[in-house]
Amino acid sequence: MVEMVEKVVPLFPDQIEWKESLIKTREGMQRMKELGVTKLPTILINNVPEFISIIPSEHQLKAAIEKHL
């Protein structure tokens, strides 16, 4: 899932920032709780869960990001 994000992010230069939160860290667990994420992995865009346990295609992820810009 992260690899797909890494592939798509360069298509939006200077427009988006992203970070990976890992559940195996206390910070990651905390962030998951704060955002109400219950399933992993999940891609959130502007804190909105967009892809829950499904790896999107490049087109799908690009379209989801564009919706938020």
Binding site: E3, M4, K7, I55, S57, E58
Partner: peptide, 10 residues
Amino acid sequence: AGVKIFTDMY
């Protein structure tokens, strides 16, 4: 093959 397969599946 990498994540390309998720696009290639379509």
